[in-house]
Amino acid sequence: MTGTGLPPASADALLFDYLLRLADSDIVLAQRLGEWVGKGPVLEEDIAQTNVGLDLLGQGRLWLAYAGEVEARYATRGRDENELAYFRDGSEYRNLLLVEQPNGSYADTLVRQFLYDAWHLRMLDALARSRDERIAAIAAKASKEVRYHVERSSGWVVRLGDGTDESHVRMQRALDALWMYTGELFAADASDDALVAAGIAADVTALREPWRQAVGDVLAEATLAMPSDGWMQGVHGRGGRQGVHSEHLGQLLAVMQSLPRAMPDARW
C-alpha cells in the first residue's frame, strides 16, 4: 500500500485494521438480525429483515477475505474469514458501538438499522471512489444492496413514527436512547486520517452533514424529533473502532463463537 508515507508493513497493518472496522460492523449487525429470525412481527418482515442480515453477512465476508489477504502481506500468514470472525476476542473487534446494541423491541431494532443504513450507504458511496481498487469494488457492490436497506428502514421509521400514539412513543424513545451512539459514526482517529490522506479510506467527517440531512428528512416525515447532540459514546479515540466496546459485545461473541472455540481443531 502506498500513499500513507509509512513503511509498507505498517501501512498494510493500518489497512488490515481499517478493513476489520468495515467488516465487523456488518458481521455484528448480521448476528443481531439473526437473533430475530422466526420472531418478527409479521412473516413478510421476517423475510425482509433476514434479507438485510444476509446482505450484511455477505458484505462482512468480502471485507474479511480481503483483510486476510492484506494480513498475509506483512504477517507470517493471513487468517481466513472464520479465524477472524470466531477467534478474535471483543477487544480485537472493530465494529461501531451502535450495531452491537441489543435488539430490544422492533422499534429499537429498526431505529438502530435506520441510523446505520443511512450512514452505511454514504460510507460505501465514498469508498466506491477509493484508490484501493478492491475496496472500491466491494463498496460498489455493497452499495447496491444497502440502497434497498435504506429504503426499507426509512419506510418503517415513517410508518411507525407516524402510525399510532404507541408506535410514535416507542420510536421516539428508541431514537433518543440510540442517538448517543451516532457520534462515533463520524469520529475519525489518526489511522483514519492517514488512510484518508492516502485516498484509501472514506472521510467520515464529511459524511456527517449529508447524513443529518437525510436522517432529518425521514424523521420529519415520521413526525419524530431529531434528538439534540449531547454526550456521545465512543468518540475521542476510545470506541468500538478502537476495540473499546459496551458490555453487549462480549455476550454476543460468547454465543457466536462458542462452537468453534469448544472444538478448535474441527472443520465445519
Binding site: E35, I47, L54, L57, G58, R61, E81, Y86, L259
Partner: peptide, 19 residues
Amino acid sequence: WITRAPSLQRKATLMAKVQ
C-alpha cells in the same frame, strides 16, 4: 442455531434456509 452456526458460510446458508 443461527447465532451459533460454526462458520460464516454455514450461518449464511442456515439463515437463507430458515428464510
